[in-house]
């Protein structure tokens, strides 16, 4: 396999793993952020504190946690159920990264919708909005912050190495992603390749954030 093909493979796998983890964390994190930002319920403060803690959680700790969870000696891995990912698979990495990105997406979404004028919800209800329509309207008002939440989630996981290294194992052709490849090549002294991989990673992180900012600036601003 040529260098370019190997590089492409690693880039695609990184995008797949982090992209899927991002999607999952957006599907879970935006509703959670809406709930925490707009509703008052018992235990909310505790949940908010948990989300804020999760936003600053070190990836290696999540990696260790998921490792112990999925280990065949562990509580989930031992069950050997088909929908529970095995260690050293992309699915295990997706799980770890979803856990990492979820509090980022939920936390930023919570802050964004919490900053929307509470009178807006009353106003759109008075204009005939159902609950879902009213919630959607609040989400749309907060779109800048919600887009930032998604960007923060992506930035947090595409560039993390601790969790994917532990649960993915950095297996060539299978679980080797940009960050783990950089660690490996640096350890082997292949600085040329490590630098090339780093530039690709920087480029990806920048493109994703630029795209998001662009979307935010262009089609979201009336």
């Amino acid at each position: 396999m040529s260098l370019d093909a190997a590089l492409l493979e690693i880039v695609l796998l990184s995008l797949r793993v982090s992209g899927f983890a991002l999607l999952l964390s957006v599907l879970l994190g935006i509703p959670a952020g809406l709930l925490l930002g707009l509703r008052r319920f018992p235990g909310r403060r505790l949940a908010v504190a948990a989300v804020y803690t999760g936003m600053a959680f070190p990836p290696v700790v999540i990696g260790l946690f998921v490792y112990l969870l999925l280990s065949r000696n562990g509580p989930l891995g031992g069950l050997a159920l088909p929908f529970i990912p095995s260690l050293f698979t992309p699915q295990a990495m997706i799980l770890a990264q979803t856990i990492l990105a979820f509090p980022l997406v939920a936390g930023f979404t919570m802050a964004a919708v919490g900053g929307v004028d509470p009178a807006l919800r009353v106003q759109v209800r008075a204009l005939g909005a159902s609950h879902w329509q009213a919630t959607w309207a609040v989400l749309e008002e907060a779109r800048g912050g919600v887009v930032a939440a998604v960007a923060a989630g992506f930035g947090g996981i595409i560039s993390e190495v601790g969790a994917v290294m532990i649960v993915g194992g950095n297996i060539e052709h299978r679980t080797r992603v940009l960050t783990t490849a950089i660690v490996l090549e640096t350890g082997k002294g292949n600085f040329d390749l490590a630098i090339a991989l780093s530039l690709v990673l920087l480029g990806l992180a920048f493109s994703a954030n630029f795209l998001i900012v662009y979307l935010q600036g262009r089609s979201f601003d009336p």
Binding site: D117, A119, L120, V122, Q123, V124, R125, A126, L127, G128, S130, A137, E140, E141, R143, P222
Partner: peptide, 19 residues
Amino acid sequence: LAVLRRITTVFQRPVLLKR
């Protein structure tokens, strides 16, 4: 919702959408 949609309010402080 059917009842809600037959009534509407204009509030003292207009809350307009970001559009």
